[in-house]
Design a protein around this nucleic acid. Structure first.
Lengths: 340, 340
DNA sequence: CTGAAAGCGCTTACAG
DNA sequence: CTGAAAGCGCTTACAG
């Protein structure tokens, strides 16, 4: 019934190597004050006994920055963009011998709040969060309590935390400009949920491109519902039902893009001849779509790494002023807008 | 410098409500022996102080089954099938007030071993693992030590653990039979990595369908490299280069399918007229592909839930004999094989 | 350079 | 029904 206690514990290592548990602890933490030969003996004992420190006990005792646990709050693990971020954070953490604990709240506000509390109770070194305006207060509370937080994808309005995000306006501008240069004048924009700040930044980029080319932007061509697949489907249907159809669509994220593709195919629209499409967010299987998707690539993986790095920097410099890392996206030209 | 200690701790709650910390602890754990009015008073104190138990301390002290942490070992978080599994596990855990800690080893053997050790050091209640034969020994060790393990997607050869998996042979049979009934006789199979047991089960299903229809299976049409996107690309190229091309392809997982689509589109093959394609694994954007993908759906989300449930059952019945849950997949008929 | 001891925030027999 | 005390497995001043 009771599990054999194989993970011997500090005591056994101490006994085996003839020192105190304090010393064993010191060699585990690479304390340079330990005499070399003592350290060696202890290391041997650790190896032969197969000892592994209990991370829970370490964390309970440890002071911040040595807990080796980072909390990552993610809106939707089904969205490949967030998966990239997760992988990036994880990669950095792995190299620091840290673990990451993910709170995937699936766009559910209740879960979102709860996960903040839970991760906090897990004594994370700090948080990396893709905030929703909804929980902004709660996140600010964390910061006031001295818990390091870095925002990813979206910053805090109060700007009190580090942030790494994409230059959304620039990305949307690039996409729209690409279409304009190809001769499109009536471009629909399927925007994301207006609750989310990035949505507005992308709309701004869309408008800016029109402005630069002295084109007027038709307000009726900006569509928005939520940021999910289903909204992509519904809004594309609305667009196709327009008496005077636009010649191109710019979708604001990968879920919307996918939803849009579904409808375009169902209506047997020729892409890009009858309608061109360009999406925000690149995916690794963009070439498996037909035609291959031209998209604005956000560097999710790199952003995740940077965020983790920022977090650990802040751990050692809690008083440093908040930093912003704005990553320029890149246009991946493939086939869905025609040859450029 | 030092974070304000807002999360008051048992002591403050005890002081505030005029009882001992033992009593506070009891009401947190819903011990029925506590007098109702005492409990009420304590609950009020907890609420007004905004107290939240420190999960790390709880876990250190707790005995198995009350640690509320499940370890999930996943081969590749970029694969949507595993994302479904993660979501399922998480859903169940959430309802148990448990957290799940994910070890995503990205198909890297070294990471795989390391994550087992790390999750173990985190004192998980138990593991849910998609094993690789590589780490089978290590997983068996876990079991011998009395740590509950449930395998997902793939079982243990020794059968010593609970397992929830798809009926792979049946799934592959369904896919192949579907193609045969549509009149295809020469069907290529892009199988997964031969190191992985599911690969062989799917090949067996493929063969079985041929047998049932008294067709001979051409060994030269079974292709295998690894289980990733790139292999899908390469093997499809090989297939198209064949002097005598098959009329259909059956791909063994979603990554291979996507790779295959890329090549088929690049070569401007008409699907399904020139070549039909059917894939193992369904994805939520199957309709965004062109043509919409006909696929064998594995119930990843449900499997994840079941696995978590099995894990918690085993926690209360450690001696129960290992259970196997074999889930029947379902054929999702769309357009990539033509109308049925 | 090393050990004895206190303590991280909890839970749980053991008394009463 | 409740409290005092031991202890989970570590780390870290404090002595020496």
């Amino acid at each position: 019934m009771k599990p054999k206690n194989t993970s011997s514990g500090l005591k056994e290592v101490a006994r085996y190597s003839g020192v105190s548990i304090a010393t064993v602890s010191r060699v585990i933490n690479a304390d340079p004050k330990v005499k070399a030969e003592t350290a060696l003996a202890v290391q041997k004992a650790i190896k032969t006994l197969g000892y592994r420190p209990n991370r829970v006990a370490q964390r309970l005792r440890a002071t911040t920055a040595r807990r080796r646990l980072v909390g990552l709050l993610i809106p939707d693990i089904q969205n490949p963009y967030y998966v990239d971020i997760i992988r990036g954070v994880e990669h950095y953490a792995y190299n620091q011998n840290a673990t990451v604990i993910i709170g995937n709240f699936s766009q559910d506000p209740k879960k979102e709040e709860l996960y903040i509390d839970i991760l906090r109770s897990e004594s994370v070194d700090g948080f990396i969060v893709a905030t929703t305006p909804r929980t902004e207060k709660k996140v600010e509370l964390l910061i006031e309590e001295g818990i390091p937080v870095v925002c990813i994808d979206r910053g805090l309005r109060s700007l009190k935390a580090d942030v790494v995000k994409t230059d959304n306006e620039a990305g949307a501008f690039m996409a729209t400009e690409h279409l304009i240069r190809l001769g499109h004048k009536r471009i629909a924009h399927i925007a994301g949920d207006k609750e989310i700040p990035t949505t507005h930044e992308r709309i701004a980029g869309y408008r800016a491109a029109f402005k630069k080319y002295h084109l007027k932007t038709e307000e009726g061509l900006i569509f928005s519902r939520k940021s999910d697949y289903e909204s992509g489907v519904q809004l594309t249907e609305e667009i196709l039902a327009l008496k005077c159809r636009p010649t191109a669509i710019f979708t604001a994220n990968n879920l919307l893009t996918l939803g849009s593709y579904e409808v375009l195919h169902r209506h047997k629209m020729k892409i890009p001849e009858e309608i061109a499409i360009i999406g925000f967010d690149d995916v690794y299987w963009a070439n498996s779509l037909n035609p291959a998707l031209t998209a604005v690539k956000q560097f999710g993986y790199e952003m995740g790494q940077q965020a983790a790095e920022l977090l650990y920097k802040r751990l050692s410099h809690p008083q440093a002023p908040p930093a912003s890392l704005i990553i320029k996206p890149e246009l991946m030209i493939r086939k869905s807008c025609g040859e450029s």
